[in-house]
């Protein structure tokens, strides 16, 4: 009987550790759906890119999550930042064409942060999207890629 209580206590302990992780994952999935559906009346969801498990370089610096995608000419794309409500940190999206920065959700000229940006693509090709945590604190975040309907 004593042993059974021990096992129950252990299960309660493990659940208390593991359940928040599970809920947190579900939280982001729900958030992705909300973000995708709230990206604008003219936006159609294409894909989401989750920052995933944080990775650090040899100096202990957080490595941005990188995604490679094919974007097409004459399409207007929308990139939207999507965060778990429990994550208060800052998230920046950066879009590169090869090694050239196309745009970012943080405008260095004005110091202003944006929840996303539209990319009016005029060159079909391979592009790279980075999800960065400028505070150095990783969190649950994703980028939503949408197709913007234009006349």
């Amino acid at each position: 009987m004593k042993q059974l209580f021990k096992i129950i206590r252990l299960l309660v302990f493990l659940t208390s550790i593991l359940l928040p992780c599970q809920l947190s994952g579900q939280d982001l999935s729900k958030e992705i759906q909300d973000c995708a559906l709230n990206a604008g009346n003219d936006a159609v969801y294409l894909q989401d890119f989750k920052a995933g498990k944080p990775q650090f370089n040899a100096d202990g610096k957080l490595i941005p999550a990188k995604f490679t995608m094919l974007l097409k000419k004459n399409v207007r794309y929308r990139f939207t930042v999507c965060k778990s409500p429990s994550f208060a940190g800052k998230v920046v999206l950066k879009l590169y064409d090869e090694n050239r920065l196309m745009g970012t959700t943080f405008n260095p000229a004005t110091g202003k942060d944006y929840p996303g940006f539209d990319f009016a693509c005029t060159k079909t090709g391979v592009y790279h999207l980075f999800i960065e945590f400028p505070d150095g604190t990783p969190g649950e975040a994703a980028a939503i890629l949408s197709y913007v309907e234009t006349k």
Binding site: K73, L95, D97, M102, G103, T105, N107, Y114, G116, F117, D118, F119, A120, C121, T122, K123, T124, G125
Partner: peptide, 9 residues
């Protein structure tokens, strides 16, 4: 925020 590419294929 809108990014205009200005490079064309």
């Amino acid at each position: 925020l809108v990014i205009k590419q200005n490079e064309k294929s």
